[in-house]
């Protein structure tokens, strides 16, 4: 992607609010207690997605934040709203697709996931939401190898995430 093609040349980089490491509750160490899915867990899944244009994560650009996530574990429902950095961002669909794919890969299939642009933050909000909400279109998009590669790039966490831990 060329420098000239970027929609937002100089995006504002925000401070990270949610701490990186999660402090474990005693119940989480107990094998017999079930930990419910919560907002933080979903946020941890999507915070490190790379922005398609910049070498920054969605968290850095505050495209996603912990408060824009709704989780209902019992009804198996999750809704993620994201805010593009500028209202005419042409990457909004791609970002939405990346979030969707990440959640598709990381959540058990019982969950119904909605990914939407937060109200009033994009010009063609409705069109994008419709695209992202349409299962068939998402599936069709992922059949496209080029698009899949772009999405995979967004989802790659700077090399293999196991390299640093070993």
């Amino acid at each position: 992607m060329n420098e000239t093609q970027k929609d937002n040349l100089n995006p504002l980089v925000h401070q990270r609010i949610t701490p990186r490491t999660r402090i474990k509750q005693p119940a989480e160490l107990d094998n017999d207690v079930r930990d419910p899915f919560d907002r933080r867990e979903i946020f941890d899944l999507i915070r490190d997605i790379n922005d398609p244009e910049h070498p920054l994560t969605l968290e850095d650009l505050r495209v996603v934040s912990e408060n824009d996530i709704e989780v209902d574990d019992e009804k198996s429902f999750i809704k993620v709203s994201f805010t593009p950095t500028i209202p005419h961002c042409s990457m909004a669909t791609l970002i939405g697709l990346a979030i969707r794919v990440r959640l598709l890969r990381s959540l058990p299939p019982r969950f119904k996931v909605e990914v939407e642009i937060s109200p009033g933050s994009h010009q063609s909000e409705k069109a994008v939401n419709k695209q992202l909400g349409d299962k068939e279109r998402v599936a069709a998009a992922l059949e496209n190898n080029h698009l899949l590669n772009v999405v995979n790039q967004c989802l790659t966490i700077k090399g293999n995430s196991y390299e640093t831990t070993v």
């Binding site: 474990k24 989480e28 094998n31 207690v33 079930r34 930990d35 899915f37 867990e41 941890d44 990381s106 959540l107 058990p108 019982r110």
Partner: peptide
């Protein structure tokens, strides 16, 4: 992915 414990899920 639907394990009882969050650590395992992560």
């Amino acid at each position: 992915l639907d394990d009882r414990k969050r650590d395992v899920r992560t």
